[in-house]
Design a protein around this nucleic acid. Sequence first.
DNA 1: CTTGACTCTCCTGCAAGGGGAGAAGTCATC
DNA 2: GATGACTTCTCCCCTTGCAGGAGAGTCAAG
Lengths: 126, 126
Amino acid sequence: MVAAGLLKIGDVAARSGLTVKTIRFYCDEGLIHPASRSDGGFRLFSPDVFEELTFIRTLRALEITLPDVMKILESRRSGICTCTSLQSTIRSKAGEIEEKISALRAMHIELMDLLNDWQDCGGQKP
Amino acid sequence: MVAAGLLKIGDVAARSGLTVKTIRFYCDEGLIHPASRSDGGFRLFSPDVFEELTFIRTLRALEITLPDVMKILESRRSGICTCTSLQSTIRSKAGEIEEKISALRAMHIELMDLLNDWQDCGGQKP
DNA sequence: CTTGACTCTCCTGCAAGGGGAGAAGTCATC
DNA sequence: GATGACTTCTCCCCTTGCAGGAGAGTCAAG
């Protein structure tokens, strides 16, 4: 063990449910930062990273883009209240989700209509 | 005009609502085929292409992938009844859409809960 | 014949990572 | 201290469905 309490990327991946690739990618993108590096160059993470990764996962599940996630994380870290921007981001996402839901509903109805029309196809070319 | 009744890619784009880039891309991918080429190499399309492009747009709006779209188009062109494969494709897409809708609903509820929890933030760091 | 609009092919890039190569680090054991 | 198994490192290419641009060639009109 290189340092007490610090975790290697594989441990972080296993406990967070994300892949090593993804965590490395988030580091490269500046979303998270390893607490330090081992002498050999291994990324070493503080356990605090799990809270951040959970936060990131939540935002990503809402299809918030990585640049937006980064902005929110930076605000959060800087101690500036992100309530307003976060709320507006989330509110707009909620709106997008509503739109998507109705678009999908319309699609679903259209699909069902299509299937009904073809019930009696009988092997003919459509 | 190089040939009577044939359209250049720009005309097809303008009337179909797709971009020139997209049409060229569909040609490259083999989804559609120009009726011929001009001596200088311009793609020339029969007006029949609009029907196919409309069909493609419908399938794409359902988020059916281009390879799947191509399969369906090929079956359609070959005269083989595509009812079965088309129906199964569409049925699975309908299933996916249902899943997406419920996932989005869950997200939406989660978002609303989040927003409600933050009603009384009062400028504090979350 | 020239001009301007259109089109050609080829290359690069996007989101959000995944896959793999080849080299190097780490840890436990002998 | 050396070995062997496992992990991690960086670097590069792949994905989907196009968009953007470079540089060159084509078309139709004046």
